[in-house]
Each structure stands twice: as C-alpha cells, then as structure tokens.
Simulated scan of single mutants.
Amino acid sequence: MRIAISICALMGLVAVSAPRTFAQEQPAHHWAIVVHGGAGVIEKSALGPDGDKAYRAGLDRAIHAGAAVLDKGGSALDAVEATLHVLEEDPHFNAGKGAVFTREGKNEMDASIMDGATLMAGAVAGVQRVHSPISAARAVMEKSPHVMIAGHGADDFAASVGLKMEEPSYFFTESRWQGLVKQLKKQNMPIPPRPAGVPPAGEEIPVAVVDESEGSGVHGTTGVVVRDRKGNIAAGTSTGGMQGKMPGRVGDSPIIGAGTYASNKSCAVSGTGTGEYYIRLGVAREVCNLVQYRHMKLQDAVDEVIHKELEALHGDGGVIAITPDGQLAWSFNTPGMFRARLVEGGQVQMGIYRDEP
C-alpha cells in the first residue's frame, strides 16, 4: 500500500512539473487606442470655430487610421505608425508637414517608437528630409543596431532603407512661418530669409499658437499609445519641437523614457510638454514605474506625475497612457490638450479644452 501511494504521489509530481505539449493560445483582447496632438494654452476664443473643427477632424482621421489596422488584427506597432502618419501629414499639427521652425528658419523634426512586448525602440532627432519621421524611427529600431540616429545621418539612413524623402520645402506651411516671424520680432531677434523653394506668402490656416517664449503657447507634439488584440502595447511620438528653438535642440519626444516608453509589464506612454522638464524627470518611464513597482492604477499614476512631480519642477504639459489590461488615461496641467481615445466596439471620446471629459 505504501508503495502504491508513493508511486501515485510521484506521478502527481511529474504531471505537475512536466511541460504542457499542447498549444497555449493567448486570450483575445479588445484593442484600444489613445491619441494626443499637443497640450498647452488652448482656448476656444483663440482657436476659433474653424480651428476647433479642423483639429477634431484631424484627430478623428488619425484615430480611425489606427483603428483600421487593429480591426484587421494588426499589431500595436503598425497602428502607432499608421496613426502618426495621418498627423504628420496634417498641417494643423506640429509634426511632419506643419512642423515649426528653428530660429534659423528650418524644420528639425524628432520621433520615437517603442514596442512594449520586446522593449525594442527606435528614434530620430533633427531630421529635415524624411517624409515620415515616425517611419524613420521604426526603421532605426528594426533595421539598424541603434536606438537613436540624429541629423543628416538619420536622413541618410532613412533614404538608404527606401523611405520616402522630401525637399525641405515640403514641410513648410505659411501659418508656422508667420508664427516664427511674429515670435522673433517680439524677441528682437533677426528674421531668417524665407526658405528656398516655398511659394510666395499665402493664406494661413487656423493653428494653435506655439510661441513658447513666454510660456503662453502650445507644446505641439503628436503621440499615440495602443493595445492590440494580442494584449501587446506600443507607443510613438512625433514632433517638430519648439518654435524658435536653437538649431540642434532636441526635446523629450525622441528620448526613450522621457517622451515615449512602453513595456508590457507596466504601460505605454506618450508625452507632450516642455521637453527639458520631461527629460529631467523621465516622465514616460516615471509613469510606468509607478504602475509597475507601486502598483498604482494608471489614472492615479499619470496624475501623480503630471500634477505633482512635473509641477514641482514648474513644468507643464500632459501625457496619454494605456496598460496591457486595458486601462486608458490622460492627464494634463494646461488649459487644454488635443486628445481622443477609442476602444474596440465603442465610440470615439474626444476633447480639446479642460472642461471636456
């Protein structure tokens, strides 16, 4: 009897410890996506009805571009790239075509992307010719041994892997140029010559003011966080940076852990704000740390970082975030943030001003 019991016990131990030989499928998830188009002093009276309508339409196109990818079973990374393509081609947003100018009258754009499942990441800084900076960032992640490439080297790399390239004049918009001229005049700084190859002065479109010289503008950055049906998350951020910035200045958007971060162990985050503060605090990673190590709910974590830690440094801006278990959040300490979110099977929730949900 004792032998029989011992054998049975031993068989039980083997059964428990032996590897399972059948396929273990991942549970299905509802996809979800959150988008931002910048934060700052965004007020109805300044933006006007035409501007309000244009920004909402742009956010709607972008979030549905990402949703279309996810609906077909696409990855979170694919959805991030598709969403930001739309915002980079919309001249209302400070990314890609419509990017702001440096004080020398040039567009220097930054972008980054990160895969929460693998912690792979890619970024570009100060690009001037690649049509889609977010695609260049993804190419750095997938087709180079590096995480970040900057300046002419980043443009040359993008061209070498077959990405669409443009003349610098492609990114020019009259609204952003006139915004630079106005800011430099106010600062009693020299006005650079109008860029080569651009059309004569023409009609402007209503855009959010991005004059940050007195802390009264909009931090014009675009970003997206995504969860796909496999439960993987990803984040991406793309920007023209700070209007009137010194040539070569790099903000938080291409810096992994500052403006962008994603890990399936915590959350995915994209930020928009005064980049220097986001870099010092490591805003994106700080949110993820609170979720992973202090086990905070996502909304509590983003509020803690934006309304306490960032404000303690006198920084301003906002973040969007998502977790693998489906928590969605945004938080900002400015009068407004262009923002939208969508969960599979639901309706788009969108806001611009502080008094909107």
Results as ranks from 00 to 15, higher is better:
M1P: 06
R2E: 15
I3S: 14
A4L: 15
A9K: 07
L13H: 02
L13F: 14
R20I: 15
Q24A: 14
Q26L: 15
P27T: 11
P27W: 10
W31G: 05
G37E: 00
V41W: 01
D50L: 13
D50V: 15
D52T: 14
D52H: 13
K53Q: 12
Y55Q: 04
R56W: 09
R56D: 12
A57M: 09
A57S: 14
G58P: 03
L59Y: 02
I63R: 11
I63A: 10
A65F: 02
A67D: 00
V69N: 00
K72F: 02
G74P: 01
S75G: 11
A79V: 10
A82D: 00
A82I: 05
E89M: 13
P91D: 05
H92V: 12
N94Q: 12
E104T: 15
M109W: 03
M109I: 10
D110G: 06
S112C: 10
D115F: 13
T118K: 00
A121H: 05
A123D: 01
H131W: 08
H131E: 10
P133F: 05
P133R: 05
A139R: 00
M141V: 03
M141I: 07
S144R: 01
A150H: 09
G151V: 11
D156Q: 14
D156L: 10
A158E: 06
A158D: 05
S160D: 12
S160H: 08
S160E: 05
L163H: 07
E167V: 15
P168Q: 00
S169P: 07
E174D: 08
R176L: 07
L180E: 02
Q183W: 00
K185A: 08
N188V: 07
I191P: 01
P192I: 13
P193G: 09
P195A: 03
P199H: 11
E203C: 13
E203F: 13
E204S: 15
E204T: 15
V210L: 03
T222F: 04
V225K: 10
K230I: 00
N232C: 13
A234T: 04
G236P: 07
T237E: 04
T237F: 03
G244A: 10
K245A: 06
R249S: 01
D252Q: 12
P254I: 07
P254G: 01
G259H: 03
G259Y: 03
Y261K: 07
S263I: 08
K265C: 10
C267R: 07
V269S: 02
V269F: 07
G271W: 03
G271Q: 06
I279W: 00
L281Q: 02
V283L: 14
R285Y: 15
R285H: 15
V287T: 01
L290H: 08
Q299H: 12
Q299P: 05
D303F: 09
E304T: 13
E304K: 13
E304F: 11
V305I: 15
H307T: 12
H307G: 11
E311D: 12
E311C: 03
A312D: 11
G315A: 09
G315Y: 08
G317I: 01
G317T: 03
I320C: 01
A321R: 04
I322S: 05
P324S: 06
G326E: 07
G326V: 14
L328G: 00
F332A: 09
G336F: 00
M337D: 02
V343K: 12
V348N: 06
Q349R: 12
Q349I: 14
